Computed example of a mutant assay.
Amino acid sequence: MSSWFFSYGTSADPSHVATEIGPVAESIPATIPDHRLTFANYRAEWGGGTSCIVPAPGLDVIGVMHKVSDDQVALLSNADPTYALVDKTARTAAGTVDVKVLLPITIGEFAAPADSYVGKVRSGLSAYYPIDRIDAHLKQALQRDALFDSMVAQWVNESAPQREYNTLFRRLLPWRGMVRTPWGGAWATIDPGDASELYKHDEEEIAIVVAGEGELRVDSNTRPIRKGDVVYFEPYCEHVVTNTSSEALEVLFFWWGGRDGTMWAGRPI
């Protein structure tokens, strides 16, 4: 037997659900009519209020339905004693569906959530809805015109580049925990005398040299590069960047498309 579990918060993302109850069989967008999203019940581990839904005639809550097994329903029921599974009716493109929704047993006054929490909700929903619809939905729930309270940034002193493609690779996009994007981005640093991994892929890509000098080979074409140069790589071309100077060579890469289309950005990073 299976049931539909409706998520309106951080668990809209199937990968997040999987960390709690295991992989789900199917996930589709859905709404619950005559309800609205809000934030309440401050929780220290989340740094602020957490999402919940309350009755509101004429409004809709956007979310995602996950098909779950009876064992997974049991896990949801016992995950947190302050929450309970409630039966609701959701609306999909195919019609109405009975769903189970996890709600706080007691819903307190509005409590502003942390920016990081809002970002997780936004990121999960962005796999299924246009970002402008998500932001309008969240702003209504937050009771304010701005989505975030503080400056959203990736500070260089807090970044954690990894060794990838024979470079020090700092992934920028999609912005983890904030929003999925239809493109990827990274800041690569190549040490003097080193070269990036010879690589080809099905995405389109551009490279922007932001510091240093070196040499770029695209298929059989080779030429020097320096700060300010911008180069386009068509799908499946071979490309390798070599640092021929005594200083670090820094290159911004942005890529998009490929066989997975715009949804490639849902890949874990």
Rank of each mutant, 00 (worst) to 15 (best):
F5V: 04
D202C: 06
N78T: 15
M65F: 03
A211D: 12
D202L: 05
G177W: 08
R133A: 13
D260T: 06
R267E: 09
G63Q: 04
V251Q: 03
M263I: 15
A74Q: 14
Q162F: 00
E234T: 15
K100W: 09
R163I: 12
T262R: 06
G119A: 08
V240H: 01
L59I: 02
V97L: 10
A146T: 14
G49P: 11
L138K: 10
K227G: 00
A141D: 03
N166Y: 11
S159Y: 02
Y128S: 04
N41M: 13
L249E: 03
S126A: 14
Y117H: 07
P33V: 05
V99Q: 01
Q72Y: 08
S150Q: 12
S246C: 05
A56L: 10
T92D: 04
G257D: 07
C237S: 09
H239M: 07
T181A: 14
S51F: 10
S150L: 09
Y199D: 07
A186T: 02
D87G: 14
F110I: 01
T189D: 02
P81Q: 04
A56Q: 13
D87T: 15
D135T: 11
P113M: 02
P29I: 03
S123V: 01
P174Y: 00
R36W: 00
D98K: 10
G119E: 06
N157C: 04
E234A: 15
G108I: 10
V24W: 12
G185F: 13
A112Y: 07
L142G: 08
N221E: 14
D145M: 11
R36S: 12
A188W: 05
F6E: 00
I32W: 10
R133Y: 13
L252D: 01
T31V: 14
G212Y: 02
V68W: 02
W187L: 15
Q72N: 06
K200Q: 11
D260K: 15
Q154R: 12
L75T: 08
S69V: 06
A136G: 12
E215A: 03
L252T: 09
A114T: 05
G261T: 05
F169V: 00
I28K: 15
T10P: 05
H16W: 13
I62R: 06
A25E: 11
V118E: 03
A90K: 12
